[in-house]
């Protein structure tokens, strides 16, 4: 492949993934709203509602507050959306392998995950509103809080794969190709279940959903760090939120549910890609229901100090227990 072809493939892949991320993300936001509505005994908006919302916001005027710093204020939403799409380039979708990738991209994804949040923090501080400032402070605290359990969950899997003698364990392609459940024994499986639970609890914080939405907290901060955003800028944050939903779900799928239909049932290559893609969407649906919709409708919002103690003490401890179980499993397996 010549250099030009490589570049073309990367650009084409990026555009395709961006479109996929936004469309699928908005669709799953609609699915989440429908699930929540049904559980709350409401009819709820139609599935296309997030598309209508995004289109309407795109047509609305941008208002920049008087005491905001305009270039940061306008730049933050673009940064948030761009970084969210970048992460998607490293994640496998069904049997379609990531556009970019290589050794150690798992670590890169962990770092990239903080960028949309940081963009929101920067935008919040640049808004010049007390609500946005408080929201931005909270967002930073939450960012630091959920990093520990998330890192434990991700590293435990990569470590276990490397102990099983698989080369390049920190590459998502490797992790997706070698389901970790096939490597571990029963003790490790229990550990992995705990880690799966942790990832399910980190997802709402990453996506700033109830009960971990202290940074936006509608009834306290009136939208927190997004309080001053409107029109196109807000639409960009909304799209970033949609892409992040897909990213978090795809990450959970890649780490814990990486199986493909084509590896069980023999089928023609073209059919296999399509079938795996549909299967991937079904897995994303599962993740969205359990770690976003169900959690957000079943409990009250936590205070910021409660969020920190939940992540550092309870989920941190649970993470270490899960890690320990995975390590014991590795020892039992005799490696």
């Amino acid at each position: 492949m010549t250099l030009i072809e490589t570049i073309l493939a990367a650009v084409g892949g990026t555009v395709a993934m961006a479109v996929f991320g936004i469309v699928a993300g908005l669709f799953f936001l609609g699915v989440d709203r429908k699930f929540a509505a049904l559980m709350q005994a409401r009819i709820g908006p139609p599935l296309r509602q997030p598309f209508i919302d995004a289109a309407k916001l795109m047509r609305k005027e941008n208002i920049v507050p008087e005491n905001a710093i305009p270039w940061i204020f306008n730049g933050a939403p673009i940064l948030a959306l761009a970084s969210a799409i970048t992460i998607l380039l490293y994640l496998p979708v069904g049997s379609i392998m990531p556009v970019l990738g290589g050794a150690g991209d798992l670590i890169l994804v962990m770092y990239l995950l903080t960028i949309p949040a940081l963009a929101m923090v920067v935008g919040g501080f640049a808004s010049g509103s007390p609500y946005a400032t408080v929201g931005a402070q909270r967002e930073m605290v939450i960012l630091i809080a959920y990093e520990l359990p998330l890192a434990i969950a991700i590293i435990a899997i990569a470590w276990r794969l490397s102990m099983a003698g698989i080369a390049d364990p920190f590459s998502l392609t490797t992790i997706a190709a070698n389901p970790v459940w096939g490597v571990v024994g029963p003790v490790g499986a229990v550990g992995l279940l705990i880690l799966l639970g942790i990832l399910a609890w980190v997802t709402p914080a990453e996506l700033s959903r109830i009960p971990f939405d202290a940074q936006e907290a509608e009834t306290e901060l009136a939208g927190g760090l997004l309080v001053e955003y409107s029109g196109k800028n807000f639409a960009l944050f909304y799209l970033a939120q949609a892409v992040k939903t897909i990213v978090m779900a795809a990450l959970a799928v890649a780490l814990f549910l990486p199986w493909n239909l084509s590896s069980f049932v023999a089928m023609a290559p073209a059919v296999a890609v399509a079938a795996d893609f549909v299967f991937f969407l079904a897995k994303v649906l599962l993740v969205v229901f359990f770690s976003i919709s169900l959690i957000r409708v079943s409990m009250a919002r936590f205070r910021i100090n409660q969020i920190v103690s939940i992540y550092w003490v309870w989920l941190g401890l649970a993470g270490f227990v899960g890690l320990a179980l995975v390590m014991i499993d590795a020892i039992l397996a005799g490696v």
């Binding site: 559980m39 709350q40 005994a41 409401r42 939405d213 509608e218 009834t219 919002r301």
Partner: peptide, 9 residues
């Protein structure tokens, strides 16, 4: 409290 389900119920 952010517990909208209970509001609806």
């Amino acid at each position: 409290l952010g517990f909208d389900t209970l509001l609806h119920l």
